[in-house]
């Protein structure tokens, strides 16, 4: 579901030979910002994220509490910074597992073909029919919520889609003459997958990984919003919204800032993927 709309003409970075426009750069900057925050969060939180620091609950934006305080009077800025860890970390682990599995199965199915391909494809297609959030809910409700369970569930939800995407790409590459040449040379399946297919599907597969990351962030936030994601006293961004939902009618910053955090991450991943750097191929050179 990559959107191929016209983008403003690329600026040129002559040293790398890549064209990368402003929208894409902003997207990448925001992604990197949150990634850095997720890593260094404990070092920069102004207050301990679990500590009640203010008498006033749902406090407004102020000099000492930049994003106000939550329903217990905890500092929202600190909680948002720590929440980045959960949201980014869990989603990243989930998407990595889902895509790694999907790509490997997809390529193997495309290269081997036959019964293996048919059965695996049908099975995963059928699995696709189960609504993702609901599946997550059922599993977590049944097994109990913990971070490994969340990661595995999210990976399981998005593996079939990733498989389907990677398989479609790999099937296309597999029909190319260079793969036939390698086969005729006597190469084994392992080499075909590693050297001939993988490098040629990597670009689109990484873009797909980005989109899937967005979906996972959204589902994870949804699970936390329903109260079965990351468990208190810790909270990811979805959990922060849930905790402070009563502040909504007051227009409390405690509910607005976590929302902005989620939106800023997902929108910038989308922006980045729609405007990936393009390698410059100058035909006249």
């Amino acid at each position: 579901m990559i959107d191929h709309h016209d983008t403003p003409r690329g600026l040129r970075l002559p040293r790398f030979g890549y064209a990368f426009n402003m929208t894409g750069r902003i997207g990448l900057a925001v992604i990197l910002f949150w990634a850095v925050i997720a890593i260094i969060a404990p070092l920069i939180t102004p207050y301990p994220p679990g500590e009640i620091v203010d008498w006033d609950y749902f406090g407004p934006v102020s000099k000492s509490y930049w994003m106000g305080t939550d329903y217990l009077g905890r500092d929202i800025l600190s909680r948002v910074l720590m929440g980045a860890r959960y949201t980014v970390g869990i989603s990243l682990a989930g998407v990595t597992l889902a895509c790694a599995g999907g790509i490997v199965f997809g390529m193997v199915a495309a290269v081997i073909g036959g019964w293996f391909d048919t059965i695996l494809s049908r099975l995963l297609d059928a699995f696709n029919g189960i609504p993702s959030l609901l599946f997550g809910l059922v599993v977590v409700a049944a097994v109990g919520s913990s971070i490994p369970v969340l990661i595995l569930t999210l990976a399981a939800i998005y593996l079939p889609g990733s498989y389907r995407f990677a398989r479609a790409l790999a099937v296309n590459v597999n029909t190319m003459d260079f793969v036939t040449v390698a086969r005729a040379r006597g190469e084994k399946t392992g080499y075909l997958i590693r050297a001939e297919i993988l490098p040629n599907i990597l670009g689109p597969v990484l873009a797909d990984l980005g989109l899937r990351f967005v979906f996972i962030v959204l589902v994870l936030s949804g699970l936390s919003f329903l109260g079965i994601g990351v468990q208190p006293p810790h909270a990811d961004w979805g959990g922060l919204v849930r905790e402070n939902i009563e502040g909504l009618s007051l227009g409390a910053p405690a509910v607005i800032f976590p929302c902005i955090a989620i939106a800023s991450l997902t929108i910038s991943v989308n922006m980045f993927i729609d405007n990936l750097p393009k390698k410059i191929r100058d035909r006249s050179q």
Binding site: L218, S221, G222, G238, I262, A263, D274
Partner: peptide, 14 residues
């Protein structure tokens, strides 16, 4: 459309 699909559903609802 990109904004809407980037935002969690509970945000649209709230």
């Amino acid at each position: 459309t990109i904004s809407v699909i980037s935002v969690p559903e509970f945000m649209v609802a709230t």
